[in-house]
C-alpha cells in the first residue's frame, strides 16, 4: 500500500513517515500542500493529510479528490490540530474517512489506519 503524506510541516511529515515505518508501512510519498499532493496521486492507495496548509488546504484536497472518479473512494485520514467537534463533522461531511487530532501517539495512528481499512 502506497501512502501519500501531506503536511506543510517538514517535522510532521518526518514524524508521520517514521511512525508509518514502525507500523510496517514503507512505501510512501510526501507533499507540502494539497496542490502538490494532486500532482502525486498516481499509484497512491491511501492519503494522510493535514488541514491547515498554504496554497491548497487539506479540506480542499479532500473535496477535489472526492469529485475525481479515480480517487472518489480512496481512503483519507486527516491529521490536524483542529480539535473542535464542528471541525471533525465538517471534515467527515467533506469525505474524510477518519480523523486524528495532533499530537498523536503511534498507537492512535495504527488504530485509525486499521479502522479505515476495515471499513472499506
Amino acid at each position: 500500500m502506497k501512502i501519500l503524506v501531506v503536511d506543510d510541516s517538514l517535522t510532521m511529515r518526518r514524524i508521520l513517515k517514521t511512525t508509518l515505518r514502525r507500523l510496517g508501512y514503507d512505501n510512501f510519498d510526501e507533499a507540502p500542500d494539497g496542490a502538490v499532493a494532486l500532482t502525486k496521486m498516481e499509484g497512491i492507495d491511501f492519503v494522510i493529510t493535514d488541514w491547515n496548509m498554504p496554497n491548497m488546504d487539506g479540506l480542499t484536497l479532500v473535496t477535489t479528490l472526492r469529485k475525481d472518479p479515480v480517487y472518489k473512494k480512496i481512503p483519507i485520514i486527516m491529521v490536524t490540530t483542529e480539535a473542535g467537534r464542528e471541525d471533525i463533522i465538517e471534515a467527515i461531511k467533506n469525505g474524510v474517512n477518519n480523523y486524528i487530532v495532533k499530537p498523536f501517539t503511534p498507537e492512535i495512528l495504527k488504530q485509525k489506519i486499521d479502522q479505515t481499512l476495515q471499513k472499506l
Binding site: 510532521m12 490540530t81 480539535a83 473542535g84 467537534r85 487530532v101
Partner: peptide, 23 residues
C-alpha cells in the same frame, strides 16, 4: 530550518489542543 519548522509545529499543536479544551 528544521528547528524553525519544529517550533512552528509545536505552536500549532499547542494552540489547536487548547482550542479543543476551550470548546
Amino acid at each position: 530550518n528544521v528547528v524553525k519548522d519544529a517550533i512552528g509545529e509545536i505552536a500549532n499543536m499547542v494552540t489547536g489542543g487548547a482550542k479543543g479544551i476551550l470548546i
